[in-house]
Design a protein around this nucleic acid. Structure first.
Lengths: 334, 334
DNA sequence: CCGCTTGTTGAAAGCGTTTTCCATGAGAAT
DNA sequence: ATTCTCATGGAAAACGCTTTCAACAAGCGG
């Protein structure tokens, strides 16, 4: 493996000149002739700079860390796409880690990102309303920021004294509910996801806030935030008597589970019961009936997070608010 | 940011002892008392080792590189999940990059991974049957292997003189076709994806090989490998006269596009026309009608790739073959 | 023709680790 | 008591780069 020293020797210049020639140091010009000699030598030796060594010398890396719960989840993979794209534009590389929804793992991963001295860190998993968890997250993140000196961004709730892509789940769900108001929505069930997950809770509460005051909340059913969680919760909702006429699942994959449960119960959506979700996951667009939902610009959110922490004029605790837009489709059509 | 030197000073031991105490160097024991002093000092100073410095000193990093075409694609995100999990077990971190399906970008990314001196590299994108592209990929990969000395694994075709998770697309598609044989399949159209993509081609050819010899191949329609590609191609297939009675899309997302096209044409699947896909993407399980497909253990494939290149007894050009299993569902039921 | 500025190069000092190699002290063997 | 091991600690040399700083040549006005 050729080193810069080899290149310098081959080009018959000093190490310093070689370094300057290779990555065009600012406020310093190298003579075109030497420039050429170095470039050619590098080519000849198939030289490639050692990022670790550069990181050492420069005192900072070029890797941005990204922590998600589960990269298979289309919600997270879309965000990851936005993050990688934005990072690529900054000629940075992204280091990905997945928590599997475990708080302890998340803490461990932040530590790992700290070892890596990532130049920026994006926390994309939603926060839990658990004082102990939040406190631990706060100290870990603070310790990261203080020690590494790199900016951190979270996507979701503004609870952590770091830059935040604030997702206005409440308003999105409220708008969705308002758009659904009508004579056909009198009894609604909410498939509310994990009780402590802010994202889930904000959506559930927002939806309730947007409902007509005459509408009755038949049930708030908690459960896992995934497809099977939606399926199970829906079965409980369907057991209610009288049956709800509208079901709001706090995310699209749960809504899909709900759709399946309804179908298996012999019910037709939306005729017998209406279903709405949240997120507008592209992969789920072709589900039948098409899901009414609140669209979140997932990729943009990833890009926004990177913009917040790789900006030239870095702000300590910057915020960007992301709004969801209501998308009415078949699953709630009467 | 506390360095090891600070820890050593705080613990009143030498740098060497501190280093040995922190990461328990082999064939060397440090006195329990000093051990304790160092650990406590590290704790007190909130010390975290600098991965870049360790990489320098040790001569190798702990990051495995992963290159995919598009992380939003559930195919790739599942593989990524497998890779991150397996890497985590090896206490390695993964560096993710996306090509956006562009060959030049892929080359650039491999170079980037080389700069990073990743300790292993996984190429998850499928290969193209393009001599120039393949040649460039070969030299870039060879140059990577030679210069960095890290193993490389590709997931897909065994064409690159590196360890390979060989996906037996041909056999999978053939089995699928065989399972579908019957009086109802007389004219089949194949939504064949990009003409040069090996993965797509192998699946198309395998499917043809598995068909009854009396069945007629009405058309091989090429196009993009995604949902819209499937949609467009399906519209062409439906314009055929007489109309095919079975359509095979070379992957599930294309098959979903095809389903939608059929529905929009007023046709019922599978009554009017049967549709089959490939991959068995979990997120698409609840599409109606449920897709007949060939299941690929995507996550396992990612894990297998990592196992191949992070194994203790590294083999130069190891191979693991992954077989698809036929899953018959509603979309081809008569 | 001298001293200055300007433009460019090279020597060397880090950056934070690991690891080799030497030194030292304590028992064990003689 | 003397020599040998053995166990363990520390000094110092890498690792591959960037960057500061000094040096030097050339061009300039005086």
């Amino acid at each position: 493996m050729a080193t810069l020293k080899d290149v310098a020797r081959e080009a018959r210049v000093s190490l310093s000149t070689a370094s300057r020639a290779i990555n065009g140091s600012k406020d310093r010009v190298v003579h075109p002739e030497l420039q050429r000699r170095v470039t050619e030598a590098a080519q000849r030796l198939n030289y490639s700079p050692n990022a670790a060594a550069q990181a050492m010398a420069r005192g900072h890396t070029t890797a941005v860390g990204l922590i998600v719960h589960d990269i298979r989840d289309p919600y997270f993979s879309s965000i990851a796409a936005g993050v990688t794209q934005a990072a690529a534009r900054h000629r940075s590389v992204v280091t990905l880690a997945t928590t599997s929804h475990e708080h302890d793992t998340e803490i461990r991963l932040i530590e790992a990102m700290r070892r890596q001295r990532v130049c920026a860190l994006v926390l994309a998993g939603g926060l839990n309303d658990d004082e102990a968890e939040l406190a631990e997250l706060r100290t870990t993140v603070a310790s990261f920021k203080e020690a590494v000196g790199s900016p951190v961004a979270v996507i979701g709730q503004d609870l952590l004294d770091v830059s935040t892509v604030v997702v206005d789940n409440h308003a999105g769900a409220r708008d969705l509910a308002q758009a659904l108001r009508g004579p056909n929505v009198t009894r609604v069930a909410i498939l509310a996801g994990p009780p402590t997950l802010f994202t889930a809770r904000d959506r559930a509460e927002g939806f309730i806030a947007g409902l007509d005051s005459t509408a009755e909340i038949a049930a708030m059913i908690h459960g896992p935030f995934d497809r099977d969680g939606g399926f199970t919760a829906m079965n409980q909702a369907l057991a209610l008597d009288p049956r709800p006429d509208l079901v709001f699942a706090v995310n699209d994959v749960m809504a899909v589970g709900a759709l399946v449960a309804a179908r298996q119960a012999g019910l037709t959506v939306p005729t017998d019961i209406a279903v709405a979700g949240f997120d507008d996951i592209p992969t789920l667009h072709d589900i039948t009936p098409a899901l009414t939902t609140a669209r979140l610009p997932l990729e943009e959110m990833g890009e926004a997070a990177v913009r917040l922490i790789l900006a030239d004029d870095l702000i300590d605790h910057a915020r960007v608010t992301i709004n969801a837009t209501v998308v009415l489709r078949e699953s709630t059509r009467r």
